[in-house]
Each structure stands twice: as C-alpha cells, then as structure tokens.
C-alpha cells in the first residue's frame, strides 16, 4: 500500500514524499499505527537500512509490531504513545551525528511533532523523510487559546481546550507541527456551517 495521496494545496501545507532508503547509515525511525507498513516496505526495498536503525513504534491498537520487530533493526522499541517515547526520541537526537537520517511514517500528527522536535535539535530538514499512512486526522492549533486538538476529522470542530468552534485551514506551522484552526462564527456567533468530514 503506497502513502496517502493528498489533493494539491497551498505552499505551507506539508508534502510527504515517501521514504527512500539511504543504505546502512545511522537512522532513527519513528512510526505509528499504519506507518509500520511504510517501514516494512522500506526494508523490503533495502534490508541494509535496518542495520544501524533505532526504530520506535507506536502500535495504537494495530497488530504490526511483530513484523516490524522481525526486520532486525539495531534497536527496536515499542511505545504506547508519542508522549511516552518523547524523552527517548530526544535522547536519540541528542546522541546523533551529522549523516543520520530520520524516517517518519504514519499520521500527520506524529510526523509533524517529530519533525518539529528534530529540527529544534539541529537535524537539517533535508535529513528528514516522511511517508503518510493511515488516518488523515489533523493536529490543529487553536489560534485563539493556542491549545492543540489532536485527531481532528471534521470541519468545523470544537477546540478541546477553549470550546470555540473552529474551521480547519490548510495553513501549517512546521514549528508547531499543526494546522491552524480559526473561529468559524467569530462575526456571527452561533451561526455555524454544516459539519463535514475532512478529505485528504
């Protein structure tokens, strides 16, 4: 199964080009849920990519862990959530040297947060690869209260922090790893458009 195809959008919206093996070089790999498939496909194209890889996988209820573990990465670790493995991921970045590739696969929320973390650690954008798989739910920042709502699948949606009804923009902040949500009834409080499912 290839990566998700998104419809063309504005220049700030990220594009997930898909994973390309860099051979037996130092690597950190981070995937959630269906993102496992992207790592499995990557290893199938070039098994050497696992030789020096530190793989962190967040199953999120999927059964892919056993197949990932069998790929023979130098280090394999499963974590129940991104929050749970964050310090481990930060340590891996702090210990890394130039020449390390970061492979990210799975949901936009995971790819976005991990990219922001890696850039802050000094990893150049060119050393980060990503492939979108699975849910197209978005990670949204409320421009009003600054709270982040995870897993947004409808437009508009309710900010899980301040309760405002927000519409979903394609404008995306790499630093925050989130799309922008803006009050949909700011000018006419209470007048709400019909709720729609987000499309890729």
């Amino acid at each position: 199964m290839p990566g998700t195809e998104f419809s063309p959008s504005i220049a700030s919206r990220p594009v997930y080009a898909g994973l390309v093996a860099q051979g037996a070089m130092p690597a950190i790999m981070l995937a959630d849920a269906e993102g496992a498939g992207a790592l499995i496909d990557l290893a199938a194209r070039d098994p050497a990519v696992m030789e020096r890889a530190h793989v962190i996988f967040i199953p999120a209820g999927t059964p892919h862990g056993a197949r990932l573990r069998a790929l023979g990465a130098r280090i394999y670790h499963e974590s129940p959530s991104y929050a749970a493995c964050l310090e481990r991921f930060r340590k891996a970045l702090a210990d890394a040297h130039m020449g390390t590739t970061l492979y990210l696969a799975g949901t936009e929320g995971l790819i976005g947060q991990a990219t922001a973390e890696a850039l802050a650690a000094g990893l150049p954008a060119g050393a980060i690869q990503s492939e979108h798989r699975g849910s197209i739910a978005r990670r949204m920042q409320c421009v009003h209260c600054k709270g982040i709502t995870e897993g947004v699948t409808t437009d508009p949606f309710t900010c899980s922090h301040c309760g405002l009804t927000l519409f979903v923009r394609d404008h995306y902040s790499r630093r925050l790893g989130a799309f922008q949500g803006v009050c949909v009834d700011a000018e006419t409080p209470g007048v709400l458009p019909p709720v729609q499912e987000i499309r890729p």
Binding site: L93, H97, M98, G99, A121, G122, L123
Partner: peptide, 9 residues
C-alpha cells in the same frame, strides 16, 4: 573532519 560532527553542524 566530517565524521562524527554533532547534529546541526
């Protein structure tokens, strides 16, 4: 020289 340089070099 290039080997082992820290991230962000």
């Amino acid at each position: 020289v290039l080997a082992g340089q820290p991230l962000g070099t």
